[in-house]
Amino acid sequence: MLEIKNLHVKLEEEDKVILNGVDLKIGPGEVHAIMGPNGSGKSTLSYVLAGREGYEVTEGSATLQGEELLEMEPEARAAAGLFLAFQYPVEIPGVGNMTFLRTAVNAQRKARGEDELSAGDFLKTVRAKAKDLKIDAEMLKRPVNVGFSGGEKKRNEILQMAMLEPRMCILDETDSGLDVDAMKLVSEGVNALRDAGRSFLVITHYQRLLDHIKPDVVHIMAAGRIIKSGGPELALEVEHNGYAALLAEAE
């Protein structure tokens, strides 16, 4: 599904290297988790994959279902099936959440040569999915993320994911800011989307989330590289012992 090879990234504006040769391969239907200390480059990796400006890829490649991602505009990556649930979802005053969702859904359908969803079908789908995530009608009417609580923003990310039905979902700390019940809701939302043709990359600091969303592989990222990969037990090890031993081992 997603294959990242020897990815090196620096900031465009300054000589600061952030990613230092990332290798990662996620097969169809797999769930991978990335953990790692603050500032190790996890969000940067997700931004570079999604196509945010300000980063320069100096080496390496990333492909989604065989297609070279790094050359595409962000909207083309989305249409190709990539989705990033942001660590910090963006507030857009003046753009209604519904308008936003419908514009996005229809833009992607159009890019894929499909018909637009009728207003009625769209409404029905959105209402059902919002209900599962306990997002009320009033929140759908408000401007995108404006005045949403931290947890509401995260649930709104998952609603977008559910509406857009991407192939490759990257969740950047979607668990942070969620209360216990919301974490369950969100995990259920994610698990409902799990299928043989859809893959996930879950960035998190806490083992907790991985109790709900069971990963096939756990990676540890430090200083812009994956320093260790393993099974779910790796997350438990981090939870109990922190990163010190892993970092020392990697030295």
């Binding site: 196509g51 989305a78 890019a111 977008q160």
Partner: peptide
Amino acid sequence: FYLQSRGVP
């Protein structure tokens, strides 16, 4: 970028 990342040209 947020809008583009959702597929909006």
